[in-house]
Design a protein around this nucleic acid. Structure first.
Length: 427
RNA sequence: GUGGGCGUAGUGUAAUGGUUAACACGCUAGGUUGUGGCCCUGGAGGCGAGGGUUCAAUUCCCUCCGCUCACCCCA
């Protein structure tokens, strides 16, 4: 029986790497543009961190965590998301002593035990950003702008932004109780799955996928009508900032969606999602929001914060769906082809070229035709042909594999060959 | 956890209750003496596993496993 990769994991083969390079490169560039600095946290953490931070009642904690006991008897969990870890690191390393807000990003693997389907796997990757230590709506707008810029810089089109405000804990109780009242009033028209939800997580009835429910949800009480005071001012100010973003980025637009809620416990006020217009069922590309309560929940001092997470697998799916070009990886500058007894000389030449920082690959020791085919298949720029004759005369044949490329005789030494291919490549 | 679809070379497909299971791409060896792509000719490589029906199963039936899509939930 052959070994197979665990369910929900992927081998990212060389041919797919250009896509990954693209999403990582653009993430790094965009983060830098906005002044976000990279943070890496451990791939596993104390299980309690996620139970507390993500919320004990969430599905993530209830049934999706990869948890195990280590040899010391501690309960360890492979991280299912990044925000809790970043906040833990903020508290543990005393980052509140830095000028606030602290802007950080990460790009890393996450783990959730779920049934795989399109756009969802067990080991997946997120690019996430967090702005910690500032409650102003300008920061909300900045995070949203960053998310938008990321998608735009990737080249992805037709993405919509939906946004909502959950308000603060005060207004939320009234809201939820009115919402329950409303849905209980029409419970006989809800599918049974949503009647169950109503008891379990009333907010989630709002974003139900059932058509019958959606119509009822549209007419349900809206959370933005229940927010007041600072939360209300914050929300109004944010909408003004988003309006001005619409002027700066011609493609950018947002839609207030009263049915948008988020699954994680720690969100308050602003929540948002970027989604392709023709999204599949697991189509959310980026999701985020404000999580002012989280620092306190984790035992730190109350610190406002907001962030988002982008699903890299989903972004790549969308890049492919929209058939967007990514830079394909380049082949080596030189493939060394050897004949007869020149094998050792060829290996030495290849090493010398690499030492001189010319990417060089030795062709497999086969017939010349096979070696030439190999060089071609590797997208090599040039081949250096080295047989007994060249070794004897000290002059190698260097051939360009480009369409209509020529062949030259070049003195058989690393410097001459390196100069020759560099001059050639510069043209 | 629940439900649907699907398992034939590395990949994508085809056919068949009965001889060597086909095609394309890919891989590999050649197409005269030391020159790639295009073209031509060879070669290697496969019926997911187990059980049942049958004289005979890749084909029909069952179980399992795997993949996939959807629900739940979420990036």
């Amino acid at each position: 029986m052959n070994f197979k990769r665990p369910r929900g994991t992927a081998d990212i083969l060389p041919e797919d790497q250009p896509y990954w390079g693209h999403v990582y490169d653009v993430a790094r560039n965009v983060a830098n543009q906005f002044g976000y600095r990279r943070i890496d946290t451990p791939i596993f953490e104390d299980t309690n961190l996620f139970e507390r931070g993500v919320g004990n009642e969430t599905d993530i904690v209830q049934k999706e965590m990869y948890s195990f006991e280590d040899h010391g008897g501690d309960s360890i969990t492979l991280r299912p998301e990044g925000t809790a870890s970043v906040c833990r690191a903020y508290i543990e390393n005393g980052l509140h002593n830095l000028p606030q807000p602290v802007r950080m990003y990460y790009a890393a693997a996450m783990f959730r035990y779920e049934r795989p389907q399109a756009g969802r796997v067990r080991q997946f990757h997120q690019f996430g950003v967090e702005a910690i230590g500032d409650s102003s709506p300008e920061v909300d707008a900045e995070i949203i702008e960053l998310g938008w810029k990321y998608i735009a810089d990737l080249g992805i089109k037709n993405v919509t932004l939906r946004i909502n405000s959950l308000g603060d804990s005060e207004g939320r109780e009234d809201y939820i109780s009115d919402l329950e009242k409303y849905f209980f009033g029409v419970a006989d028209r809800l599918p049974k799955i949503d009647r169950d939800r109503l008891n379990r997580a009333p907010l989630r009835v709002l974003d139900s996928k059932a058509k019958e429910t959606q119509a009822l949800a549209d007419a349900a009480p809206k959370s933005v009508d229940y927010i007041s005071g600072e939360a209300k001012e914050h929300w109004d100010a944010l909408l003004v900032l988003l309006d001005s973003l619409e002027e700066i980025y011609p493609e950018f637009s947002y839609k207030v969606d009263h049915r948008l809620v988020r699954g994680l416990d720690y969100y308050n006020r602003t929540v948002f999602e970027f989604e392709p217009a023709d999204a599949g069922s697991q189509g959310t590309l980026i999701a985020g929001g404000r999580y002012d309560p989280l620092m306190g929940i984790l035992g730190g001092q109350e610190t406002p914060a907001i962030g988002f997470a982008a699903g890299l697998e989903r972004l790549i799916l969308e890049l492919k769906k929209q058939e967007l070009p990514v830079n394909s990886s380049k082949g080596p500058e030189i493939v060394v082809v050897t004949l007869g007894d020149a094998g050792a000389a060829g290996a030495a030449l290849a090493s010398g070229l690499r030492a001189a920082n010319v990417s060089t690959v030795l062709a497999p020791k086969r017939s010349m035709k096979a070696q030439m085919r190999y060089a071609n298949s590797q997208n090599a720029a040039n081949v250096v042909i080295l047989g007994d004759r060249e070794v004897a005369t000290g002059v190698a044949s260097v051939k360009s594999l480009a369409e209509g490329g020529g062949q030259s005789e070049v003195s058989l030494d690393v410097t001459s060959i390196a100069e020759h291919v560099r001059a050639d490549g510069d043209q």
